[in-house]
Structures are given as C-alpha cells and as structure tokens.
Design a protein around this nucleic acid. Structure first.
Length: 424
RNA sequence: GGAGGUUUGGCAGAGUUGGUCGAUUGCACCGGUCUUGAAAACCGGCGUACCGCAAGGUACCGGGGGUUCGAAUCCCUCAGCCUCCGCCA
C-alpha cells in the first residue's frame, strides 16, 4: 500500500497518477489524511495520559518501598480516572488505525510517470516486437489438436480426476514441461538469481504482504481448515522471504528465482479464452524476484525485461512487449511490461510474462527495509516477473514451430528435453 | 495427535518472590585516540515504530487477550522451536 508519508507529501502527484488508472482517489485520500490528523491528535492525548499514569505508578512504587502504605493508597485513588481516559483513547486510536489501514488497502499503487493513461488492453503501448507482421505464421493447427493427436496433454483425463483446467501432461508433453522448467531455471541461475523451492501454500500474512489479500481473496484456493492458501504464483512465497526483514543496503539487489506450480481459481473466465492451454487452474511457472535499491529499481526492471527477452529469443518465438496502460495494470504495480507470444492458430497474442516494479507498495506491507547511508530506514523496491509461464509457451511452440510432419524443438531447448522433434 | 520444556535487541546470553528494566554483560558493528598502515588496547556510540520544531513522550522482551496503581516477570489463548511417545511417506 501507499505510505501515509507519500500521501501527505505528494498528494497531488499521486492523485494525478491514479487518474491514469481511472481511479479517483481524491475522496479516499482526503478521508485518510483527516483520520490521520485525528489519529495524531489522539495519540498525543493518549501519550500524555499514559505519561501521567506512569509517573503516578513510579510514585506508588517509591512509597511502597519506603513502607508508606497509606500515602500510596491515596495516590492509587488518583489513577482510576486516568485509566478510564486512556482506555477510551486507546479504543479511539485503534478505530482510527483500522480505518486508515483499510482505506489504504483499497487504494492501488500510483503508476510511474511514463505509464500511459488508458482504460484497457487496447491502450497498452507496444515497446518492442520481434520481427514484423510478415514473419508471423498463420493457419496452423491449434495446440489443443496437436496435444491430443500426439498425446502430449490430456485435458479430459484431468477433468475426470480433478476438474476442468487441471490437465495431465504425458510422454513428450511431460518431458517438454520438465525441459522448459530446467531451461528457465538454468538461465535464471546464469543471470545471478538464487534458486528456491518454496512452499506451495502460504498463510494470510504472506498473502497480505504481496497484495493478494484482501483484494484478490477469491482468486486463490483456500484451505479453510488450516487457514492456508494455494499460491497463485511463486512471487508470494519468494517475496515474503523478506517480510519483516531489515536488509543491508550493500546486499541490494537481492535476486531470487523459483519454479512452482501456480493455482488460480480464475472465477469468471469463459469462452475461447479458456480453450486448451490458454487459461488453467494449475500451471507451471518460473518466477524471478528482485529487491532493489529505490534509485536502481527502474534499471533493474529493464534488466529483467532483457532477461525475459533472451528466453523468448532462445525459444525462437515471435513476441512483442507492451507497457501496460494505467487501466490495465495490476493493483500493486507502478509499472508493468507484458510479454506476448504469437499463437499461429488462434492468430492472436498470448500473454506469457508480466514484469513489474512495485516500488515501495509491497515493501510497505512487507515492512522490508534497509538502513541507508543517511542513517535512516527506507523501504526497498520489489520487482518480479514470469520467466516464464509454461502453458502458453507450449502452445506457441507447438503452433509456431510446426511443419508438415511435426514440431521442431528449438536448439537451445532440445538438450533439456532430450529430443529435437515431436512427430505427428 | 499426546506429554514436557522453551521463545529476551544483529548474534550470544542475564533478568521470572511483579516496582527507576527498554532491559546487565560479551561478541559483532560505527566513530575517536594511538599507529607509517593494520591489529591490540582505551574512550564514545550502537533496537524498532509512532507523536513532537525541539526538549521530550509513548509503545514494543514470539502473537493476541487478561489480572494490577504498576508485568519481560502472574493468568488465559494461539503460534514457533526443542525433547520424549504415537502414527506415517
């Protein structure tokens, strides 16, 4: 969430930035600032009351030690009024703090100055495209047909055993998954990201830390008996490693990566968007995460974008990069680049990666800070990106590297799969 | 799942018959003296957050709640860790 300090100091800038999301923050911010002023006033009163209580208690302590019991009793009588006062003030404080917190939780991150205003995906800005329109393939067999024909993925079996959106991968389909995961992890490793295998379930504190809770509660699978959530992305456990941690300024940037399955309820999705591998309830992804110095975080974002580019180049897939407009960005992000690969059968672009800088929005929830040269503590900037999400990559590989007799596995990937072709 | 123990500031480790304890001490760390430089020694500093222009105040000894004029110290509850038992990949 945004910091109170930033709301106080840069109210106008934040309101203007949030306008780019078509989020009118004027009223909410006004309200928060009012509550905050009240909170500060209340705290001053409370602190004062408590200070008086403490003074009397010390006095009583001194009198008791000297054995002046009656005098002590007399002083005790004075405390009851203060006690009632302070408990009332405490209650007021708590109410105000809760109100402020709840309100802050419902204000999205302020987009970076370079982010375009805009309502939806059509307003996103293409910042890079591999090749040009003439290099795009068309009229290919859709990946769901190939997956069935070559027995790579069994959607119906998944539907029987679990439900729609939980496919089985089999044979070369399974090996392709494993090969891609290893390929992505090795690339991340080479780029200096430390590999983790995190838990696949998280507690509510972690869900709050990265912003899934309370805003996206319904998107996660929830184990009610144990109050745990299935992770929607490795971002959540990886980023929460540094929840409530004071990092050393010299240790920044911290670079982590990890492969996990990701679980998403995807409530409300339907139609062609969910066909085949387009949208699944469980899918595999390698995630990269960085904790960066605020002054470096946009250079870091660029470096992460370059990393993902390298992966798509190696897979020889046609792709483009979009800088999302305000209206299409996630709640917690200050700037996001989406990567899309071409589906030669569906003849449309499929999102395979999202790389974001959250600035201090997550760090403020996580309380992940460093002590600067100035001796003060500052929030770090957090960033993450998919590198990469597998299903749509598989779809794109099957469709774009298709010829009359089968599928060619790109040379960079083949060693990880153990085969160079999938024959029809 | 059952029984017992335990949880203190970056780490180690005091403090549990409630009362100058936000907390002794050591290490680590930062600054200074000394030194050509370093080490050693000595001196000083050294938790976090909030309120306040400041002086200063308030809160925090795993989390939450309670008893009390007053709690790191007593009670309840939840969680983590350790030991033993049970069950099991």
């Amino acid at each position: 969430m945004l910091t109170l300090q930033s709301l106080r100091e840069e109210q106008d800038r934040i309101i203007a930035a949030l306008d780019k999301r078509h989020f009118d923050a004027r009223e909410a911010i006004q309200q928060v600032l009012e509550w905050d002023a009240e909170r500060r006033k209340t705290q001053a009163q409370l602190d004062d009351t408590l200070a008086q209580s403490n003074a009397l208690s010390r006095e009583i302590g001194g009198l008791m030690r000297e054995g002046k019991k009656e005098e002590a009793e007399a002083v005790k009588a004075q405390t009851s009024n203060l006690k009632a006062q302070s408990s009332e003030l405490k209650e007021q404080m708590q109410t105000l703090e809760t109100q402020i917190h709840d309100a802050l939780c419902h204000i999205p991150n302020a987009p970076h100055a370079d982010v375009a205003a805009g309502r939806n995906a059509e307003d996103n800005v293409e910042t890079f495209r591999s090749g040009d329109a003439s290099t795009l393939e068309h009229h290919k067999k859709p990946h769901w047909d190939i997956a069935e024909q070559c027995q790579l993925i069994d959607f119906e079996l998944g539907a029987k055993v679990t439900g729609a959106g939980f496919p089985f991968y089999r044979g070369k389909g399974a090996k392709l998954q494993r090969g891609l995961i290893r390929f992505f992890l090795e690339q991340a490793d080479a780029a200096g990201y430390e590999e983790f295998i995190p838990p696949h379930m998280i507690n509510p504190d972690s869900g709050f830390g990265t912003g899934q809770l309370p805003d996206k509660e319904g998107q996660m699978y929830h184990m009610q008996d144990d109050e745990l959530y299935m992770i929607p992305t490795a971002e959540v456990p990886l980023t929460n490693i540094y929840r409530d941690v004071m990092v050393k300024e010299g240790d920044l940037p911290i670079k982590l990566c990890g492969y996990t399955p990701c679980f998403r309820r995807e409530a409300g999705s339907y139609g062609k968007d969910v066909r085949g591998l387009n949208r699944l309830h469980q899918f595999d992804k390698v995630e990269i995460v960085q904790f960066a110095h605020p002054e470096e975080s946009y250079a870091t974002l660029d470096a992460m974008v370059e990393h993902v580019k390298g992966l798509l180049e190696a897979l020889e897939l046609p792709y483009r990069i979009l800088r999302l407009c305000g209206g299409d960005m996630g709640f917690t992000s200050a700037m996001t680049y989406d990567f899309e690969v071409w589906s030669a059968a569906q003849e449309r672009w499929l999102e395979v990666s999202s790389v974001s800088n959250f600035e201090t929005y997550q760090a403020n929830r996580l309380k992940c800070r460093y002590k600067g040269n100035d001796g003060k503590t500052h929030l770090v900037h957090t960033l993450n990106g998919s590198a990469l999400a597998l299903p749509r990559i598989v779809a794109a590989l099957l469709e774009n590297h298709q010829d009359d007799t089968g599928i060619r596995i790109p040379a960079a990937l083949a060693p990880y799969c153990g085969f160079e072709r999938i024959d029809f």
